[in-house]
Computed example of a mutant assay.
Amino acid sequence: MSTSSGRTSRRAWGTLSRARIVDAALRIARDEGMRALTIRRLASDLGASRMALYRHVADKDELVALVLDAIAEHEVVPPGIGEGPWDRRLRLLAATIRRELAAFPGLAEIVTTRTHHGPGALRTVELILEALAEAGLDDRQTARYYLVFLDLVLGRVQRELHGDVAGIHRDASLDATDRQPGDHPRLDAAEPHLRAITADEIFDTELDMLVHAIAHAAHR
């Protein structure tokens, strides 16, 4: 909160709330990444003292937990997620999880290493499990494909953010110095497609494979 002279003014007593803190934290995390999110920086943006923030948030760890939960509850779960076929709901959840992990720099690393979930994250877990159960899977199959779903979505995001092994292998094959025209006809035929296929297409195909595997397991 800044004055016309450029100095940061103090927020009036009683105007700070946990909701305001989380909103400001989300802005910092989206614009600058999770590493930029500190109590000091947040206090400065809010025009409040760090001690004022500590009356609402115990520490940085709790602040990060609140941000994760807010993202899960308000950004990941799309409107109308409880309606429609199970496979549509599963695809929607996969797409929104991927989108939000990419939207907040550093979030994917936290999500893949953090071991505690708040209410928003637990709701997301429940929605995924509900979709799998409605596909016709038994409890063990539901648990199995839930873990496969997480591995697919979180793994895809990590690869897109930190280097895709498949992309590296593709480029190594296409740009090999020992490659001569006509020696590898299948690779020659695939080359324009290998260069054109997007990450979205790969993600959609991975989800197709998962949905087909779930349907097959349920049918058996």
Score class of each variant (00 low, 15 high):
His117Thr: 15
Gly136Phe: 00
Ala196Ile: 13
Arg27Asn: 10
Leu161Glu: 06
Gly47Ile: 03
Ile71Phe: 01
Gln158Gly: 12
His74Ser: 09
Asp139Pro: 03
Ile39Glu: 07
Ala108Ile: 06
Gly118Phe: 01
Leu194Thr: 03
Pro79Gly: 11
Glu62Phe: 08
Pro79Tyr: 00
Glu62Leu: 12
Ala95Arg: 15
Ile202Phe: 06
Ala131Gln: 02
Arg140Trp: 09
Leu194Asn: 11
Gly47His: 10
Asp204Trp: 03
Leu53Val: 03
Asp164Ile: 09
Glu100Lys: 07
Asp87Ala: 05
Leu92Glu: 15
Leu93Thr: 08
Glu160Gln: 12
Leu127Cys: 04
Ile21His: 04
Gly118Lys: 04
Ser17Ala: 02
Arg220Ala: 01
Arg40Gly: 07
Leu90Asn: 04
Ala36Tyr: 02
Gly120Ile: 03
Gln158Tyr: 10
Met1Leu: 04
Arg27Pro: 07
Val76Ser: 03
Ala131Ile: 01
Asp151Met: 15
Gly33Trp: 05
Leu37Thr: 06
Ser17Arg: 07
Leu127Ile: 07
Arg140Glu: 00
Leu122Ala: 11
Asp151Phe: 13
Glu100Met: 07
Phe149Ala: 06
Arg10Phe: 08
Ile28Ser: 02
Arg20Thr: 07
Ile28Ala: 04
Ala65Trp: 09
Leu68Cys: 15
Leu68His: 07
Leu152Gln: 12
Asp175Val: 13
Thr8Asn: 08
Arg123Pro: 08
Ala24Gly: 09
Leu174Arg: 10
His184Gly: 04
Asp164Trp: 12
Ala24Ser: 09
Arg7Gln: 10
Ala70Cys: 02
Leu92His: 11
Arg123Trp: 09
Asp175Ile: 04
Met209His: 11
Leu53Ile: 10
Leu66Met: 14
His219Pro: 01
Ala95Gln: 15
Leu150Val: 11
Ala29Leu: 09
Glu201Ile: 12
Asp31Phe: 09
Arg159Glu: 15
Ile128Pro: 01
Glu191Met: 06
Leu66Val: 06
Ala24Phe: 03
Glu201Phe: 08
Ala143Glu: 10
Val165Gln: 15
Ala133Ser: 08
Gly14Ser: 02
Thr3Pro: 12
Gly33Leu: 07
Asp61Trp: 13
Val148Trp: 03
Leu42Thr: 05
Met34Gln: 07
Thr112Asp: 01
Arg41His: 07
Val57Leu: 08
Val57Lys: 15
Arg156Trp: 10
Arg27Lys: 13
Ala133Pro: 12
